[in-house]
C-alpha cells in the first residue's frame, strides 16, 4: 500500500460493490461532519487496470461526490496486492472501528464471505460471527444468510421493526410473494416482538393446514374487511385480525365456542353474571362469576341462579350426563362393545 495520494473521484468505479455491505446507510450525520470539518480519514482503494475499486469508504465517497468534490485522499493497494478476501476482511474491520453494522449489513457481509469468497460454513461460524458480536452458532449464520436473500422491502422492514432472529427465521420460511403480501398487512397492525411471532405462526400454520398461500389467507374478505376499517386503531385491528386467524387455525374449537355461547345466551343471564367453560373444554364443570353492588341485587341474582338449575339449556351446558346422553354428537357404542372394553361391565 502506498502513502496517501489524491485520487480523482471520476477515476473511482462507483458501480463495483465487491467490498460493500451498505444497506440503508444514514448519510446525514456523515454529510454534516464532512461539511464542517472535511474528510479526516482517507479511503482505501485498489488500483485496477483503468480505474480504482473501493475497498473501504463507500459512504465518504458518495457524500463527497454529492458535495461536488473532485478528488479524495486515499491509500491505494496495488492490483496484485492482497487477495479479495483479505481486503474484504480489512474493510469489515475498518468499518467496525468506525460505525458498526446493522442486521442486514451483517447478513450481506456473511453472505459475501460464504458465497462470494467461498468460505466453509464452519469457518464462517468459528472466525467471523464474533466479529459482529454474534454467538458462534450455525443456526445464527443460517439466519443471517437467509436474511441476505430476502427482498429489499423485507430487509427494510426487518431493520425498521427491529425484527428478532427467531422472527427472521419465520420470515425465511415464507415465499417471496408471501413476504411481499405480508408487509402492507403488517404496516396496518400494532405488533411487538411476541405478537409478531404469534401472527407469523398463525399465518404459516393456517397456510399449511389449508394448503393455500399466506397471501391467500391475508387476501380473505374477512381480513381485508377489518384492514379497510379506517376508524379502527391499529390495536383494535390487530385484535380483530387475530381473532379471525385463531378461528381459522382452530375450527373445532371455534365451533364449540359458538355452541357454548348459543346455549349460554339461551338462558338470558342477568347483568353481572358470567359463565365460563374449562380451559379448552378439557375437563368438566363450569365456572360462574357474579358481581353485585347491593343486597337487593345479590338476592335477585341468587333467586335467578336457583331457578337456573331446572332449565334444560343449563343442564345441557354443564354436560349433565342425563342430558348428554340425549345430545351426544357421536355414534353410540353398544352395550356389547362396552362390556368387552377392558373386560369391565359398565
Amino acid at each position: 500500500m502506498n502513502a496517501i495520494q489524491k485520487i480523482l473521484l471520476d477515476q473511482i468505479d462507483l458501480s463495483d460493490e465487491t467490498f460493500s455491505v451498505n444497506f440503508m446507510p444514514d448519510l446525514q450525520s456523515l454529510r454534516s461532519s464532512i461539511e464542517k470539518i472535511g474528510l479526516i480519514q482517507p479511503v482505501l482503494l485498489r488500483k485496477k487496470k483503468n480505474d480504482y475499486q473501493i475497498v473501504c469508504g463507500f459512504r465518504r465517497i458518495w457524500v463527497l461526490k454529492e458535495l461536488g468534490v473532485f478528488e479524495i485522499p486515499a491509500m491505494v493497494f496495488e492490483e496484485k496486492g492482497p487477495s479479495d478476501l483479505e481486503l474484504f476482511v480489512l474493510s469489515l474491520q475498518e468499518n467496525l472501528t468506525t460505525r458498526g453494522f446493522n442486521a442486514v449489513e451483517k447478513a450481506i457481509a456473511l453472505q459475501k464471505l460464504i458465497h462470494r469468497f467461498q468460505l466453509e460454513h464452519s469457518e464462517g461460524v468459528k472466525t467471523y460471527l464474533h466479529l459482529f458480536s454474534l454467538e458462534p452458532n450455525e443456526k445464527i449464520l443460517n439466519t443471517y444468510l437467509s436474511l441476505a436473500e430476502m427482498e429489499d422491502e423485507t430487509k427494510r422492514f426487518v431493520l425498521k421493526a427491529e425484527v428478532s432472529r427467531s422472527n427472521i427465521r419465520l420470515l425465511a420460511q415464507m415465499s417471496s410473494e408471501d413476504r411481499m403480501a405480508l408487509l402492507p398487512f403488517l404496516s396496518l397492525l400494532k405488533l411487538g416482538e411476541n405478537r409478531l411471532r404469534e401472527m407469523f405462526t398463525l399465518l404459516s400454520e393456517i397456510s399449511r393446514r389449508e394448503r393455500i398461500s399466506i397471501k391467500g389467507v391475508i387476501d380473505r374478505p374477512d381480513i381485508q374487511g377489518i384492514l379497510s376499517q379506517k376508524e379502527l386503531t391499529p390495536i383494535q385491528r390487530t385484535e380483530r385480525v387475530k381473532r379471525v386467524l385463531m378461528n381459522l387455525r382452530h375450527p373445532k374449537m371455534k365451533q364449540m365456542e359458538e355452541e357454548f355461547d348459543r346455549k349460554r345466551k339461551a338462558f338470558n343471564l342477568p347483568a353481572g353474571v358470567s359463565v365460563h367453560h374449562p380451559p379448552y373444554f378439557e375437563g368438566k364443570g363450569l365456572k360462574m362469576e357474579f358481581q353485585f353492588e347491593s343486597t337487593e341485587e345479590y338476592r335477585t341474582i341468587l333467586s335467578y341462579l336457583s331457578q337456573l338449575a331446572d332449565k334444560e339449556e343449563f343442564k345441557e351446558l354443564i354436560q349433565d350426563p342425563k342430558s348428554e346422553a340425549r345430545n351426544s354428537k357421536f355414534e353410540t357404542i353398544s352395550n356389547d362393545q362396552i362390556s368387552n372394553v377392558p373386560n369391565k361391565k359398565v
Partner: peptide, 21 residues
C-alpha cells in the same frame, strides 16, 4: 404436519388434541 392439528395445553402442561377430536 403433526403440529398443524388442533392441540391445546392440558392440566399436565402437555399439548393434546382438542377433546372432541
Amino acid at each position: 404436519r403433526i403440529f398443524l392439528g388442533e392441540l391445546f395445553p392440558g392440566g399436565d402442561g402437555k399439548f393434546r388434541y382438542f377433546k372432541t377430536i
